[in-house]
Design a protein around this nucleic acid. Structure first.
Lengths: 340, 340
DNA sequence: CTGAAAGCGCTTACAG
DNA sequence: CTGAAAGCGCTTACAG
């Protein structure tokens, strides 16, 4: 080994010296450019192998002006929704030889901002954001400087940017219609905090379905708030108790559905249930869990494609794309209303 | 706006010109270094605000020699195990102001290699790998050049590197002991392909538990192979049928457990079941699913800490750390053997 | 076919 | 307190 300094990596300059050629010739060989005699190329390749040289892409990209990377900012990289979405984004990025930075905001707006700006400082080619905060004006200088951003799952606020969303209202409406079709009239909705966009949209779908069927949507049948187990348990208990108790429930997301499943009575007295978001094992429960399934992979793929269109120079007006949800009937949403 | 060129980002040089100061003074203000009069600093800050300047960290890091990023190479970013692991790694990285590249090998050794080398070419400070291939000599030049690698879930091959693994044999042994304790004597094992390290280790644990209880481990009770639904269904049918049918099963991973749950008879005739890997909703099944749970977050945290120790200069011999698994009894593993 | 010079956007080492 | 020069490891634009 003729390494200049041990522990530090050889550079093109080292290779050039070892092969007795100019820097540019090494660059030509490394990049497969034409105009190098086979003999010279061979000498260069030998030097590369001997030194264990690998081109520093960070340096190359600095010169080139792009970074061949995009950033994906999620709520929580560890939840199934985020991870299915990430996987789809990765696949699109990969087809473009683009690497992926990933990070979680942990639902903290300040952390979202810090991470997003850190990615911008690295000069990622584009940004995919599942927003936690409700003010994204901090991104205005970045998008104005040419770093496109696409919002996912929820729209950005205070910024005119692309957004790729589930058709939340349509999906919730479909879920409630399904319950109505199975004979339910008193249907409850348990949702997330009202300041969350998806929560509001799903509640809107619930109201629309009730209205179009000529059913009242009694405010006592609607509960929105934190989604921890205890709070949801109380909400479920309230809605399913007393003379005006609901006979069916639409639960507004994954966590709420899980909490409800734990606290709902089992057996004949159990209200019908449709959950928003699919769950692993949902088909193995008894009865199987009927859900309005989102398509996280579809969201990821759509958003990533849109982002790359922007990176490629699409300057059209901001778009909002809705990705369809799908009702999957498995049993829990098809039980008839209990007598009463 | 006095931007030099629209669409392209302002640089420190632009800021310096706008503020009428030298480049180095801008650098001082941006980095919060001392030795700038308040008045000068104020002029610089005004120029920064007016131009919408944000320091290019990629350029800074090129000069500095590190990249403040690590790469996480998973089997599939979209599966729950990977995503829980990623989340833990991210948290450790974040505490070090380090960004995270993430990628999936999709269990393709060639893709693993491509991605790993692409990360090395970006000069990540370190590499975390859940290996797909069984030959990692391609990494030798990289680790020799000072990019540390830590293997996760399975050890690397052909390279003397750190590895952080689940205590697979111990966990499987605990699962089988649990079944024995509940009266089972004929216990089956359905595992992944024998060339997979975790599969072999879990099978070893199974054999150890049988041996220490003085029970035969009839080869007809052991099935290893692909983990698609159909293959597992056939294996389960074979093991649970006939006069020598097993009364209990240890399923060697998540996918196998799911397939088994779909194909096992329900009700009284169902064999007892312990699954390796926990599943969401496992406690809502009837009976609840008894599992040997891995600790993906623990794996991620441990591996990330080890990696940063290496990045910080720890040159000690390669370590192998085993992260404990945990038996969670929920019902399916506590049913007594069916008469016969 | 080959290579010296300049530059990507910063920081480092140094001089005033 | 301030800044001009050199350099991180490459590519670009150009000249031989």
């Amino acid at each position: 080994m003729t390494r200049s300094r041990a522990g530090s990596r050889p550079t093109m300059r080292d290779v050039a010296a070892a092969a007795g050629v100019g820097l540019k010739t090494v660059s030509r060989v490394v990049n497969g450019e034409s105009g190098v005699t086979p003999a010279t190329a061979e000498r260069v390749r030998a030097a590369i192998a001997e030194l264990g040289f690998r081109r520093n892409d960070s340096a190359r990209l600095l010169r080139t002006g792009r970074t061949a990377s995009v950033a994906l900012l999620l709520e929580d990289l560890g939840d199934p929704f985020s991870s299915a979405l990430s996987r789809a984004v990765e696949e699109v990025a990969r087809a473009r030889d683009c690497l992926l930075f990933a990070g979680s905001s942990a639902e903290d707006p300040r952390r979202e901002r810090e991470l997003a700006l850190a990615f911008c400082a690295r000069r990622v080619d584009g940004l995919l954001i599942v927003p936690a905060g409700d003010d994204h004006r901090y991104l205005l200088p970045e998008t104005a400087s040419g770093t496109p951003a696409v919002f996912l799952d929820r729209p950005g606020a205070g910024i005119d940017a692309d957004a790729v969303l589930s058709d939340n209202a349509v999906g919730a409406r479909a879920g409630v219609r399904h319950l109505i079709r199975h004979g339910h009239r008193r249907i409850g909705f348990v949702g997330d905090l009202p300041q969350i966009h998806t929560s509001t949209e799903r509640l809107r779908g619930y109201r629309e379905a009730m209205a179009e069927a000529g059913l009242p949507a009694d405010e006592r049948w609607i509960a929105t708030g934190p989604t921890d187990r205890a709070t949801v348990a109380r909400a479920v208990a309230r809605l399913t108790d007393g003379p005006d108790a609901v006979t069916a429930l639409l639960t507004g997301n994954n966590r709420i559905t899980l909490a409800a499943l734990h606290h709902l009575p089992t057996g004949a007295g159990r209200p019908a249930l449709v959950g928003f978001d699919d769950l692993e094992l949902a088909d193995l429960l008894a009865p199987g869990l009927t859900v309005v399934a989102q398509d996280p992979a579809g969201l990821g793929t759509t958003a990533a494609r849109l982002l790359f269109d922007r990176i490629d120079g699409d300057r059209g007006p901001a778009r909002r794309i809705e990705v369809p949800t799908r009702l999957i009937a498995r049993g829990s949403g098809e039980t008839p209303p209990a007598a009463g």
